[in-house]
Each structure stands twice: as C-alpha cells, then as structure tokens.
C-alpha cells in the first residue's frame, strides 16, 4: 500500500487585513504518496504558494489539517526531511558575494544545529551533491557569475544537501530559458529515481504533463487531481473553468510537447 507523505484535509485559508478578507484556499483535500512527482498548477493568485507555505509550516491552517509523514504541520519543523526551492531564490543570488559551496552548505544549517561548525563529512556531502547535479566544477565560483540554469541547480543542491526525502519547488524555472528548463527536469527525474517525493508548483504545463506522475489543478478550490494522462485528456470546458478564461491543451505529437 502506498505510503502518504502529505495528507491535506479540508484546508481553507483567508488572508485578512483591516480593510478586506481575501480567500486564498477553500476546502482543499489532497494526498501525495511517497516517491510521487506531483505538479501543482493553476493561474496566478490561485493559492499555489499559499498551499506550499501551509505545507512548510510558514503559515498555520485556519481550518483543516495538513499531515506530513503522519505529523500535523502545526507541530512539524521543516529542515531535515524537506528540501525547498523558492521562486525568489534566483533574485537573492544576483549581486550576492558568496561562492557556490557557501550557498549549498547553508542548506545544512538546520540539520547541524546551533553553535556547530561544518565538518569534513559535510564537505564530502557537498561534493557528492554538486557531482550529482554536474556542477562540481562551479564549487568555488561566485554565485552571481552563473547562468540562470546553473544558479537553479545550485539552489536544488542546497535543497538536497541535507538528504531530504521530500522536495518542494515553488516555480523554480521562472526566468530560465528552454534549454535550462529541460536540464532542470532531467535533474528532477534523476531524483525521482531515488524515491524523492517531489511537489512542483509551476506554470509550465506543457513540460509538466510529460514529466510529472500526477497533476493537481488549483484555483481557490482543488479542481482536478489525477495522473498526467488524465490531465492531458481534460476538455476545454474543464480547463477554462480552472483558469477562468477560455483555453485548451494542444498536443504536438512531433516533439511530444503540450501547451496552452
């Protein structure tokens, strides 16, 4: 029987300030099993990042519960089991005076604990992860001097250096060209072979349907959750309902890509 990594039960979340209440998520139920590669898609402002923040414990659920490996997210402390790549990571790298190895090693901060310094074992782990992502030769380079694709690999390396069983990626390919996006998905498939559970928030629906096992479509409500094949077969009416405007999925057989 499949082992659930994330169990999202009846989650609702509303952003509240003095002037207005903005609902972001309503009654979301979603289960993700160990080793699954799930893509979370939806239009801008559909609640994808909110759901990720709830999963990571940055936001606390106002209604419902999220369980991570059987433990409530209210008590769960990310750090050891979850690796995270943010949509903003690339912008932090610009102009920052740090080497690739310093940035990747920072992924071990929580695991090491307070007052403890990095050891040879940690540096060996760094070399292993950089090698796995084919960026070993960039180890001493300044992070600002890398291309968008290389920088993205550095952030994946930071997320993987503490050997997490779950990888959460929030729009990691924003601002990256097609060649580097392709390389990025090759890395994810490599990780999937190692039974890493992957939750990917993205707008690249075309690439997602060819790589992810499952697709979840969010727009305040969870409108769809199924395999990538089932998602490919969604009709124009269903897709238009999710995205809020008329659209359809077009498949190009010659290069096996889909686009909206």
């Amino acid at each position: 029987m499949a082992e659930p990594v994330f169990e999202i039960k009846d989650i609702s979340y509303t952003y509240k300030d003095k002037l207005e209440h903005t609902p972001a998520l309503k009654n979301i139920n979603l289960k993700i099993d160990k080793g699954d590669f799930v893509a979370l898609v939806g239009p801008n402002g559909s609640g994808k990042t909110t759901l990720i923040k709830l999963i990571l414990g940055v936001l606390k659920p106002q209604q419902g519960e999220i369980y991570i490996n059987g433990q409530s997210s209210r008590r769960y402390k990310a750090g050891q089991e979850i690796g995270y790549v943010s949509q903003k990571s690339n912008s932090f790298a610009k102009g920052f005076p740090a080497s690739v190895s310093e940035v990747v090693m920072s992924g071990l901060t929580k695991q090491k604990g307070l007052f403890k310094r990095f050891t040879k074992k940690d540096r060996d782990r760094l070399d292993e992860v950089l090698g796995m992502l084919d960026i070993g030769h960039l180890k001493d380079k300044n992070i600002s001097s890398l291309s968008g694709g290389q920088t993205q690999r550095v952030f994946i390396a930071r997320a993987l250096v503490n050997d997490p069983s779950i990888l959460v990626l929030d729009e990691p390919t924003v601002g990256i060209d097609n060649r580097h996006v392709k390389e990025f998905y090759e890395v994810l498939l490599k990780l999937k072979e190692r039974s890493v559970t992957i939750l990917l928030v993205t707008h690249d629906i075309g690439v997602v349907v060819d790589n992810a096992d499952e697709v979840a479509c969010l727009n305040e409500h969870l409108h769809f959750h199924g395999t990538n094949h089932e998602f490919k077969n969604l009709g124009e009416a269903e897709l238009s309902k999710i995205y809020g405007f008329p659209l359809q999925l077009v498949s190009h057989d010659h290069d096996r890509e889909c686009c909206i």
Binding site: L56, G57, V58, K77, A78, G79, Y84, S86, K88, S89, F92, F96, A98, V103, S106, T109, K110, L114, R158
Partner: peptide, 13 residues
C-alpha cells in the same frame, strides 16, 4: 542574510 525566506522555512530561530 542570504535568503531570509528560506531561513524562515527552515525554522532558523
């Protein structure tokens, strides 16, 4: 200093 958001996610005190 490098990435405050990541530090928050990783529960840095």
């Amino acid at each position: 200093s490098f990435d405050e958001e990541y530090a928050n996610v990783m529960n840095v005190n």
